[in-house]
Design a protein around this nucleic acid. Structure first.
Lengths: 197, 197
DNA sequence: AATAACCTAGCACGGATGTGCTAGAAAGAG
DNA sequence: CTCTTTCTAGCACATCCGTGCTAGGTTATT
């Protein structure tokens, strides 16, 4: 028998390499060769774990989705257990802040999210995964608003979803203008305007 | 002397070809060969008007900026001449709506904008032009808010700018969910919440 | 120690890309 | 008609890409 290697762990390692390449040089540059080099593997090794270049990118996007989902779900539990209204508002703020590039880790994730999401427009094999990610975020925002008793959930869900996406985009593309402090202030203002009516 | 050809007009024609390719297949596919084929020219002809592949893309982005600017400026004049408050609100709505993919033409423009803007993150030669485009939009939004007497212009400018960008992104990437009607409703709601306080 | 299974490495092919050059076509000026 | 300048077309080269294959290495079990 061969050297025992957890194949799923390997796949995740390769996905990490994809993320680093995408972050530094863009999704175009996430070729098998570049990713293999970044992962410290031979191109043949990468292809042993992924049948296809497409499958590699698809897996990376799903990996990103999983990670985001896990992080957000932890906050959901915390938000539900909030007692005072102030505590609850703060919990919602933190929860939605997980979707913004507020610190280096989340900034990395947002950069990767933006690259994959926009690429999915013309790369049809990425569309289903990108779609699931978007819908997940959308229903999350919808639930948060509904549970907070905000009326007119349809329009407000779209408004908050698009605001968060726009903040993430500008936080990634123009970090000197859309700084973490600015993003937090905008999010706080928006939430306040929702509860005040 | 040769066949007289207005070189600027030719450059703009080629830029149009770039737009069509980007819209259909993404910025990655806007190679000299693909663009030349789309424009019905030989690759050598395209290179006669553009020294570089970089220069071609840069020119296309600047062309997009010019076009957008021209369209928006027309609305600015109209908004300034509004008399009643109702008329003014509607003018502002139309003005900002020019930045959203509300009809096929603007949808095309938004798709191209998104492709170039996000590509500028890793393609350094596109950054200056993308930056100017973003700042132009930002000061426009700032002026609109200031002239409408909205307080706290800093945060509100960022909030509305990011909302518009987010709507454009989702209008392009998820047109079945973020439909023109939804975008209009969101924009209207946001503007209303600003003037009511 | 021998075997069999898994993993790694890499060659080879066809295709695409940007760019440097060169040859020729088109058409107003003399 | 002829010259001269502008424009068009396209070849050639080095580089990178995804993928089909194959050969070699590594190691737990027998």
């Amino acid at each position: 028998m061969p050297k025992v290697v957890d194949p799923e762990a390997r796949r995740r390692e390769v996905a990490e390499a994809v993320f680093r390449v995408v972050r530094r040089h863009g999704l175009d540059q996430a070729s098998l060769r570049n990713v293999a080099a970044e992962a410290g593997l031979a191109i043949g090794s990468v292809r042993h774990y992924f049948a296809d270049h497409d499958e590699l990118l698809r897996f990376a996007l799903e990996e990103l989705t999983d990670r985001l989902e896990r992080r957000v779900l932890a906050h959901v539990a915390r938000a539900r257990s909030a007692t005072t209204r102030d505590e609850r508002v703060r919990a919602v703020e933190d929860l939605l802040g997980e979707l913004l590039p507020l610190d280096p880790d989340r900034r990395d994730e947002s950069e990767i999210w933006l690259a994959f999401t926009t690429a999915a427009r013309t790369r049809s094999t990425l569309r289903p995964a990108a779609r699931r990610l978007h819908e997940g975020m959308r229903v999350l925002v919808g639930k948060v608003l509904a549970e907070s008793g905000v009326p007119d959930a349809g329009v407000e869900t779209e408004r908050l979803t698009s605001l968060l996406d726009g903040l993430a985009v500008n936080g990634v593309l123009h970090p000197d203008l859309t700084t973490p402090d600015v993003m937090r202030a905008v999010l706080r203002r928006h939430l306040a305007s929702l509860v005040d009516g």
